[in-house]
Simulated assay, not measured.
Amino acid sequence: MTAPHTPHTPYGPRDTELVVLDMAGTTVADGGLVERAFDMAARALGVEPGSPDHEEKLRYVRATMGESKISVFRHLFGDEASARRANTAFEEAYGELVDGGLITPLPGARETIETLRAAGLTTVLTTGFARVTQDAILRALGWQDLASLTLCPADAGRGRPYPDMVLTALLRTGATDSVQRIAVAGDTSYDMLSGRRAGAAVVAGVLTGAHDTAQLEAAGATHVLGSVAGLPALLGVV
């Protein structure tokens, strides 16, 4: 469906030249690993499981799916040293879960990326995780060479909801001469905000992850799809 606040632009979905895709919740199913890894990280910092403090922090983690994880931990633990300890513990825990085989591609995700690239569109995979975790996911799925480029927050300067990763994708690939020829797809409001702030003409929310249609549209989605498998048709490449 199309949101009522589609941006005014001379370009439409069929003019897309660069596609920036989120990973967990959009192209990758992690089966709740973020919450499990957070629980392990919180324990490492002395947060008692089942305590009101633990529940409050977990609610914030759920609400901020898609945001750069170090930013989340800065909010939760206050000082930089604690945030970095929590982030390191989280990344290690998530990596162990990934290495244990607890991650899979979402249906049609690989085929979608292959279809987009075959049609001549440059594709970039982005994440709110650190590079070490992103690489672990890519290895687990055999996706190291699937996309044209992969980016994490450290590669761009800031993670979502800032536009940095989308703009870095454009700068590094040189795929297009206009931000309005970019399509962004993700499952969270942070993905939508990032895409809109970057000036992308297509900012597509997908319903396979953290947020629902109302949340995605409130954050600026121009389209909402059942899954990323609907993206090629939206962009007119099938």
Rank of each mutant, 00 (worst) to 15 (best):
A219Q: 03
T222C: 10
A119V: 10
V34Q: 04
A218S: 13
G174W: 01
V224E: 05
G195P: 04
G100K: 05
Q134H: 13
A86L: 08
L167V: 00
A214V: 13
T208I: 07
P7N: 11
G32S: 10
P13E: 07
A233R: 15
R160S: 11
A147H: 00
T133V: 06
E80L: 13
E111D: 13
V166D: 02
L193C: 10
L170T: 00
T188H: 05
R158Q: 12
R62F: 12
A218H: 10
G157K: 02
V98A: 03
I70D: 13
R158C: 10
P13A: 14
S148V: 06
E96K: 15
V224Q: 00
E96N: 14
F38Y: 14
G220P: 05
R74F: 08
V72K: 14
E67L: 13
G157W: 01
A219C: 06
G220S: 04
I182G: 04
Q180E: 15
S227A: 14
D99A: 15
T213M: 12
P163W: 08
A200E: 04
R196H: 09
P107S: 05
V224H: 02
T16M: 07
I70T: 14
A200P: 03
G50W: 09
A219N: 03
D79Y: 03
T213C: 10
V19G: 05
G120W: 12
G209Y: 02
T9R: 13
A221V: 02
V237I: 07
R139D: 15
S148W: 04
A219I: 03
T9K: 08
T6S: 13
A214P: 08
T188F: 04
T173N: 00
D39R: 12
E80A: 15
A200M: 05
R196F: 09
D212K: 07
G186T: 04
L125Y: 08
L121Q: 00
T16H: 07
L125S: 08
F73C: 07
T150K: 06
A130H: 11
M1K: 11
A3C: 08
L231A: 04
T115A: 15
E17F: 05
V228I: 15
S189V: 11
L170A: 12
D79I: 02
A210T: 05
P52N: 07
P153E: 00
G66A: 11
V238A: 14
L18N: 03
R181P: 07
P163M: 01
G220H: 00
